[in-house]
Computed example of a mutant assay.
Amino acid sequence: MEEDLRALLLDAPAVTALVGPRVNFGRHPQGEPLPALVLTTVSDREGLTLDGPDGLQRARVQIDCWAASYGEAKRLSRAVRQRLHGHSGGGFRALILEAARDLGAPEAPGRPFRVSLDFLVTYSA
């Protein structure tokens, strides 16, 4: 799922126009420029029915949109939302935006801004 989700974002011209190839799971490499996307799998579980596993996985993925300015972080979050929300295809049954958070101004000058998006991801196991 992680590789496919990253590829889906890198295949979106509106996203890559802002971040280029800087879409990473776990963390953004130190010293690399912004803006960037950092994806984190918050949860991932197997789907079940009364008869057992249903062949689907259900995950929550947090996508942090990092940028030097609030406006740039917000534009990036809109591009991600446009690409992913409501998407189905390939191994993905559904990508649904569950929540979005603007995390306020940085406490120290020069610190980047972040907008976080939580997606519910249903995909074939």
Rank of each mutant, 00 (worst) to 15 (best):
V80A: 10
G89T: 08
P53K: 12
D51Y: 06
P109G: 12
D11R: 08
P112H: 11
A14F: 00
E32P: 01
A100W: 00
L10S: 02
L48R: 13
V38G: 07
A36N: 05
A14R: 12
S43C: 08
G26T: 00
D44E: 15
R27M: 05
G89S: 09
D11I: 00
C65L: 01
G86E: 11
I96L: 15
D51A: 13
E98K: 12
D11H: 02
A67G: 07
Y70W: 13
L50I: 08
F25Q: 04
C65Q: 09
P109D: 14
T49V: 00
H87I: 01
P13F: 02
A68C: 10
S88C: 04
V42G: 10
D11W: 00
A94K: 12
V23A: 04
Q62L: 12
V80T: 09
L97I: 07
D102R: 14
Q82P: 04
L9D: 07
K74L: 14
A100I: 01
Y70S: 12
Q57T: 08
T41E: 15
E98R: 15
L48A: 11
H85A: 14
K74Q: 15
W66T: 08
P106L: 02
R111D: 15
G71T: 09
F25P: 03
G52L: 04
T40I: 10
R22E: 04
L34N: 12
P53N: 10
L97D: 10
A14M: 05
V38N: 07
R27T: 08
H28A: 06
T40G: 05
R101A: 15
G55P: 03
R27C: 02
A105G: 08
N24V: 02
G86R: 11
L34P: 07
S43T: 15
L18E: 11
